[in-house]
Amino acid sequence: MRREFADRDDLIAYLRAEFPNAAATDDNVAETRGGRAAAEARLRQIEPQRYGKSRNFLTGAVTKLSPYLRYGVLSLAEVRDLVVGATREIESIAKLVQELAWRDYWQRLYAQMGDGIWKDQEPYKTGFQARQYANDLPDDIRDGTTGMVCIDSFSNDMRTHGWLHNHARMWLAAYLVHWRRVRWQAGAHWFLQHLLDGDPASNNLSWQWVASTFSHKPYFFNRENLEKYTDGVYCRQCPLYGHCDLEGSYEAIEADLFPNAQQRNTTERVPRRARRAN
């Protein structure tokens, strides 16, 4: 295949012609560039201390290294070395290093599980059996036409940019699995089609963590949580504000989503972690 191109547009036109099925799946091209040069440029911009304090916010100082880590353009080891070597205050960079460790953890599991990452690792802890979840991704979520500004924005952003903040991934995943009761595999496959950092292990096992097939309890959230970490950018423009499906206390939402669950769990109001250094 060709290696010489006049510019990026020339490359994109060539790939559209060579991979028409990929273009038919989705024709968008992300602004994020591939390659080691782009990866190193991104690496020079990371702010480990700010990351630790702000990573859960959509405006936080996330690294956006994940596409480069996924394809091994950068290694986890070299990012770790850079971050650890640049400070004597380990506490200040601990959160970023821990998020890098999540990828190492998923990769180790992948080596053990192989294609088993597509299977429920454990039963759902939601009070529902796996067979009670729909198999297919609903059209309105895939197309970003649910009417919920947050969910539609996450869907559109992923298809357009090939990237989502990890918190948005968790919200979108939880909405699909718990509110719409769709098997996590449908969402996992959808994410892998679009995310530049789509890695089977990190992706699928994170979906299983949300679904509760690889965790002690389902991850869910409420409008208040989403509004806090997004600075309200979606809720402020949403016609459903105040009466959307995400509205209510954690206890009320839990009772509504999981009426058959044997034991009610106290759900975290802040996610324990973002599962990749995104």
């Binding site: 991979f19 099925n21 990929a22 799946t25 596409p67």
Partner: peptide, 21 residues
């Protein structure tokens, strides 16, 4: 693999740009 996963164009472009280096 491409047929099975139905990857979108943006993922192909990202990989191809990496390959060109």
């Amino acid at each position: 693999l491409l047929a099975e996963w139905r990857l979108s164009l943006k993922r192909i472009v990202f990989i191809y740009e990496s390959l060109l280096e």
